[in-house]
Design a protein around this nucleic acid. Structure first.
Length: 923
RNA sequence: GCGCACGUGGCGUAAUUGGUAGCCGCGUCAGACUUAGGAUCUGAUACCUUACGGUGUGGGGGUUCGAGUCCCUUCGUGCGCACCA
């Protein structure tokens, strides 16, 4: 009987499905383990061979945990809302739901062939009303909450209203857009609209006039993580800054908790670092600079409070509210011109244009420590969105201020001993302070760090400023001027935004005639008929962004069909959070921040029990394409093999990797590939046509897409699974190279031949030999350790060695082979299930318990030890593993070199630490 | 500019965490069986050298009896953040 992967895989996939082998249910008697993959966006191109990499890795872990007796939750679903389906709808008029449904069906059939242990009964799709009902529900919860900075947690907005009723804004400790001051009487006197506007300043989901990333080409607003270097991540179109009235989520309120939480979770350092950078905490001080002959006070943020004595000018961002307030009449025209010019530049243009520019406002500020008058300028190198949009400039110790000072000929005062500021600024935070004294405060002679601390203390005491922590993390912009997304559960009553009743959820996505914006420039939902409440109030026309649906999906898997709650307390208390999350790093500053925020918010509300959603995270690497080339001699239809191409003038042409094997071109398939190659001629080397290769992105246009279905058809899912893991560490990016797959396929055949010779089933009840047990237990130890450490590639090497050894030993022992099959089951489940049943078991191999390692069987007969004299090691000796203490001493003293060391000294004591070291005390 | 990874044969990688560098696989070479081989099996394969022997984990230095592994420095690659005060 030959190893027939097609028959075996089909048979057991059907068996698993029929018997619901992978169904997960709450079982209080068993410990849970939650293994999650980042769910895919179902694109039209289907899965390529890179997509399943992470799924295979997590599948192995899920199966392993199950063998260990855990109750494993391992679900899968689809992140179904997204731009590509909408773009396709705009072009073709086809409803994105139809496209999405087709793509999902394709994904499902591809996934099914690989033999994953997903519990498909828990499948979710973010575009399902049953699902997005809970996305809308969470939004309503955020709208009805504010962030209490004392409690460091979200609280009901009703509590805040009660506070306003009683005491106005006095004593309010809440994350907000801007500081507001009003009394209880003033609050009560406000009309409904004014109250609504006031509360917007505090709500966690709020409408705000914010600078947004507007992408004219996509016709929508984008979040910060959807923009890179001034271009949209999707499509690469230019992005402008634009002030718009948009729904936002007050993610920034959670900045510190998002930062602190990183300490409690098991993610890679680089990913945590990326999130820390993105959150961008900086400790500094906010200081007040009074404007001369005016009531205006400039508030600035600095991390270098120590450099106040070196401030020679101030700079405002062009968008700063202070600009209008302080510009003098004589400078008004120049300032207006400058501000207008910068407003029309996109962020990208501002970034590319590194030329120093700016304009003087005509106003002077007073340095609070020196009393000196210093000019206030406007320049676009100061960002409106960070800190207060105003800075104190210290040209001697900040390179940007330095460039500005040089360009406009402003004074530069060095503050650090020995700093040469004639050519460039001295930015390092080290050295001894000079020129920094005013009688009250003397920093001279202090180290920078001491000076910073002392200045902070001083300005707080004097009321000039206060210690302040700033974060780079901005609130998430939550509106998209798009069709294919979750509708907001929002209507406008006389212009006041109101939430729908939760009972009326979900608010279904309406039908539209076209997926484009309206002629009036409204979002596509502006085309929907009857887009209003029963009372006739207008509904919100924007939809939610992509990250809305993916922010809490891991919670929904715990209780996916619950119509009364996102997740029941029972389900949440049992499954808690994700123990192992596998996915790409590209979500580091998007999904992985938003999810953590969303989870923390729900935690504050008492809806989820864990503060962090994902305990351990593994980032699988990207699989790049490996393209093949043929070389056509110019102006001919003759192709020359790679090794000979330098002798001709050739044009490289991408050739479909699927008609190339081990870089050898199949000539007949090539001629049949395209009509223009039908009569192609070849110049061969050694009778073969060798193709060139290059590593590129996997894409259709490079003809380097390898489809997992083809691999499964030819080699089987087990071979695909093993090979993907064998390529290298899961975390590492690497090109897909089908060369080499024969190696793992051969391994499975060898394994098969251990069980079958022709039609004879070989295993019998013979006693395992010592060699059999040694081979097996080395494998148990290695594979267990490797799975725990996600080092699957080395496990597969270990399997190969073990099977080779057992073959050489002619092992027939059913006991040994049974354990071998269980060890392999997480990696190659189909062949393992087949052999498991052949060995006489009638339940699924998935229920078999994990083999227990026994050290006795793998004991080495020799052991190497370091010999030391007086604690200083000198050389190594090798002795029998069961050597007595005397034998070890003897070997140590007889070893080469010992005589030289001892040389007349007396041996006082010999210490033997078994297996490790021999210490000989001499003197 | 700041931060984080990483650098090992022709290639993908390994080295049980400071203890014989190169496991396993691909490729290559040789052989066996074959009408045939893009099948199967066996053996060899870091580099230099006919050999003896020598050199080797990007380069340089250090710690250590011992370094791919730890420290310093330098070069190179990848990723993240970036006029963030």
């Amino acid at each position: 009987m030959e190893y027939n992967h097609r028959a075996i895989e089909q048979k057991w996939q059907q068996y698993w499905k029929d018997n619901k082998v992978y169904k997960a249910e709450i079982n209080p008697d068993k410990e849970k383990f939650y293994v999650l993959d980042m769910f895919p966006y179902p694109s039209g191109a289907g899965l390529h061979v890179g997509h399943p990499l992470g799924y295979i890795a997590s599948d192995i872990f899920a199966r392993y945990k199950r063998h260990q007796g855990f109750n494993v939750l391992h679900p899968m679903g689809y992140d179904a809302y997204g731009l590509p389906a909408e773009q396709y709808a705009i072009q073709t008029g086809q409803h994105p739901e139809i496209t999405t449904r087709q793509n999902i069906a394709r994904y499902r059939s591809q996934l099914d062939k690989i033999g994953f242990c997903f519990d498909w009964d828990r499948e979710i799709k973010t575009c399902d009303p049953e699902y997005y009902k809970w996305t809308q529900w969470a939004f309503i919860k955020m709208f009805n909450s504010y962030f209490d900075t004392d409690a460091n947690a979200a609280r009901p907005i009703a509590d805040l209203i009660a506070h306003f009723e009683k005491e106005g804004s006095k004593g309010v400790k809440a994350a907000c857009g801007k500081e507001l001051h009003f009394t209880a009487d003033e609050w009560r006197a406000m009309d409904e609209k004014q109250k609504s506007d006031t509360l917007m300043n505090y709500r966690i989901a709020y409408l705000g006039n914010t600078m947004v990333n507007w992408c004219p080409k996509l016709g929508t607003v984008l979040a910060n993580d959807e923009v890179s270097e001034g271009l949209s991540i999707r499509g690469g179109y230019p992005v402008e800054q634009k002030l718009m009235y948009q729904w936002c989520l007050r993610v920034s309120a959670y900045a510190q908790r998002l930062l602190d939480g990183l300490e409690t979770i098991d993610w890679t350092d680089s990913l945590k670092e990326t999130q820390r950078n993105w959150i961008g905490r900086s400790e500094g001080a906010e200081m007040i600079f009074k404007i001369a002959d005016s009531d205006v006070e400039l508030e600035i943020f600095t991390t270098r409070a120590d450099t106040v004595f070196g401030v020679t000018f101030m700079v405002l961002a062009p968008e700063s509210k202070y600009v209008d307030m302080i510009t003098t009449p004589s400078q008004r025209a120049a300032v207006d011109e400058y501000v207008n010019a910068t407003r029309h530049k996109t962020e990208r243009e501002r970034m590319i244009d590194k030329k120093v520019s700016g304009v003087f406002t005509g106003a002077y500020a007073i340095n609070p420590l020196t009393g000196e008058k210093i000019p206030v300028w406007v320049s676009d190198y100061v960002l409106a969105g960070y800190g207060t949009g105003a800075i104190m400039a210290v040209p001697a110790h900040d390179s940007r201020d330095y460039a500005f000072a040089r360009h406009f000929n402003l004074p530069i005062i060095p503050l650090i001993e020995g700093a040469d500021v004639s050519e460039q600024s001295f930015d390092a935070k080290s050295g001894k302070m000079i020129n920094s004294s005013n009688g009250e405060l003397n920093l001279n002679g202090l180290e920078v760090k001491e000076a910073i601390a002392l200045t902070k203390k001083f300005i707080e005491e004097k009321g000039i400023g206060k210690v302040k922590v700033n974060y780079r993390l901005r609130d998430a912009i939550f509106s998209r001027q798009r069709y294919w997304g979750e509708p907001f559960p929002v209507y406008y009553k006389n212009g006041i935004p109101m939430m729908l009743d939760v009972e009326k959820l979900p608010l279904l996505l309406p039908e539209v005639d076209k997926y484009l914006p309206t002629e009036e420039g409204e979002p596509p939902l502006g085309r929907a008929k009857n887009w209003h409440t029963e009372d006739g109030w207008e509904l919100e026309k924007c939809t939610m962004p992509g990250f809305a649906g993916s922010s809490a999906y891991y919670l929904r898997y715990m209780d996916p069909r619950n119509n009364d709650a996102l997740v029941s307390p029972e389900a949440n208390n049992y499954w808690r959070n994700v123990d192992l999350y596998v996915g790409g790093t590209e979500h580091a500053t998007g999904h992985l921040i938003y999810s953590r925020f969303w989870n923390k918010f729900l935690h504050d509300l008492g809806i989820v029990c864990e503060e962090e959603p994902f305990k351990k995270l593994i980032n699988q690497g990207m699989i790049q394409g490996r393209s093949n080339f043929v070389y056509r001699i110019k102006d001919t239809n003759t192709f020359v093999s790679n090794g000979l191409k330098d002798q001709y003038d050739v044009t490289p042409i991408h050739v479909d990797v699927n008609i190339v094997s081990n870089d050898r071109l199949d000539l007949d398939k090539f001629r049949a590939w395209r009509p223009e190659f039908a009569d192609a001629e070849f110049i061969l080397e050694d009778g073969q046509y060798v193709c060139g290769y290059a590593v590129e992105k996997m894409s259709k246009s490079m003809f380097n897409v390898v489809n997992p279905d083809d691999i499964v058809e030819r080699y089987g899912a087990d071979t695909l699974r093993l090979y993907e893991m064998f390529l290298g560490p899961v975390e590492q990016s690497k090109p897909w190279d089908t060369n080499g797959i024969d190696g793992v396929n051969r391994f499975l055949k060898k394994l098969w031949n251990l069980f079958y010779k022709a039609d004879t089933f070989l295993p019998d009840d013979s006693e395992p030999t010592a060699d059999n047990l040694k081979s097996l237990h080395k494998l148990i130890q290695k594979v267990t350790w490797d799975i725990e450490h996600f080092s699957y590639n080395t496990s597969i090497s270990a399997f190969m060695i073990c099977v080779n050894e057992l073959t050489a030993q002619k092992c027939r022992s059913r006991a040994v082979l049974t354990q071998l099959v269980v060890l392999l089951a997480p990696f190659a489940p189909h062949i393992s299930e087949e052999l498991w049943h052949a060995l006489g078991n009638d339940t699924t191999v998935n229920d078999a318990s994990w083999p227990v390692f026994n050290e006795e069987y793998v004991k080495e007969n020799e052991v190497t030890m370091a010999v030391s004299f007086n604690g200083k090691a000198r050389y190594n000796i090798t002795v029998a593993a069961d050597a007595s203490r005397e034998e070890v001493e003897k070997a140590a003293l007889e070893a080469d070199g010992a005589a030289r060391w001892i040389d007349g000294k007396t041996i006082r004591k010999v210490i033997v630490v078994p297996g490790k070291i021999v210490n000989i005390v001499v003197g």
